[in-house]
Computed example of a mutant assay.
Amino acid sequence: MNMRGWQAIVLAVTGVVLTASCGYAAASYSAEIPQEELVGTWTSSAGTSLTFSKEHTFSGTGFDKVEALGCANPETLSNGRWAFYVGPKGDVTHPDETATRGNDLELSFTEDPTCTVWVYLYGDAEDPSMCPTQDPDDGCSPGGYLRRDEAPSHS
């Protein structure tokens, strides 16, 4: 095999290793929480606030401060619906409002139905934080993590 062939193999193997290790890193820091612990208000130091209800609705402010949003006119967004992602054997495939727990969820906005945001839950079940992101391996921007303001509502 010539040198160019070996370089291609080394690059391919390196890509697989890096992709797998990043995926494992995101999984090892994910927090699976039940719906009861999601319900309540979460805020970020950047000024974003989200309040989740048990009826799978949310309201919030400061969506224009969420870098990963990628929606047109984020300053006009204020409410919508949320759902945990579910799939066969735990694989993330689609949001499902019947799911009662998860480690990531989708926000869909009433004001712009084409705008959806993936939110990844980090940390542990006792003290999770959430990150609106396009890729959990990228992490959150400074001030992007949202944390619970108060004890979760168990009603």
Results as ranks from 00 to 15, higher is better:
46 A>W: 06
94 H>F: 07
29 Y>D: 14
92 V>D: 09
125 A>P: 02
120 Y>M: 07
77 L>E: 01
101 R>P: 07
143 G>Q: 08
132 P>R: 11
109 F>Y: 00
18 L>E: 07
127 D>F: 14
42 W>S: 10
37 E>Q: 14
30 S>F: 06
96 D>V: 12
147 R>C: 03
60 G>W: 00
68 A>T: 07
78 S>E: 14
109 F>C: 00
19 T>H: 10
112 D>A: 07
35 Q>C: 03
57 T>I: 03
71 C>S: 04
139 G>Y: 08
87 G>K: 05
68 A>H: 08
49 S>L: 05
6 W>I: 14
64 D>N: 15
126 E>R: 15
19 T>S: 04
75 E>R: 11
109 F>I: 01
116 T>C: 02
49 S>V: 13
134 Q>K: 12
68 A>Q: 10
71 C>G: 09
45 S>V: 07
126 E>A: 15
125 A>D: 06
134 Q>P: 00
47 G>N: 01
131 C>W: 11
130 M>T: 14
133 T>K: 11
35 Q>R: 13
72 A>L: 11
140 C>G: 07
35 Q>E: 07
116 T>R: 11
10 V>W: 15
1 M>D: 12
13 V>Q: 12
62 G>V: 01
55 E>S: 08
38 L>A: 04
126 E>H: 12
68 A>C: 02
106 E>V: 06
58 F>E: 00
92 V>K: 05
94 H>L: 06
83 A>N: 00
16 V>S: 05
26 A>M: 07
77 L>W: 01
12 A>R: 09
84 F>S: 07
100 T>P: 00
67 E>I: 04
1 M>Y: 04
10 V>A: 15
25 A>S: 15
132 P>I: 05
112 D>P: 07
38 L>F: 08
153 S>V: 11
104 D>Y: 04
45 S>Q: 10
107 L>G: 00
122 Y>K: 13
72 A>F: 09
97 E>G: 04
21 S>A: 15
106 E>T: 14
102 G>Y: 03
4 R>F: 11
31 A>S: 14
133 T>R: 07
37 E>N: 11
37 E>D: 02
21 S>F: 13
148 R>K: 11
40 G>N: 05
99 A>W: 08
17 V>C: 02
146 L>W: 00
110 T>G: 00
127 D>L: 10
131 C>E: 13
26 A>C: 01
144 G>M: 05
54 K>F: 01
57 T>H: 12
84 F>T: 00
1 M>I: 06
35 Q>K: 12
89 K>D: 14
90 G>Y: 04
5 G>Q: 15
59 S>M: 02
122 Y>T: 15
50 L>M: 08
43 T>K: 06
77 L>F: 00
33 I>N: 10
112 D>M: 03
97 E>V: 03
27 A>Y: 14
97 E>M: 08
125 A>F: 09
155 S>E: 09
57 T>P: 00
43 T>V: 03
64 D>P: 06
57 T>K: 12
124 D>M: 08
81 R>P: 01
23 G>T: 10
133 T>P: 02
41 T>F: 00
52 F>L: 02
123 G>D: 03
87 G>L: 12
56 H>M: 10
1 M>F: 08
141 S>F: 01
60 G>A: 03
25 A>N: 10
130 M>L: 07
119 V>H: 03
9 I>K: 15
29 Y>V: 11
154 H>L: 03
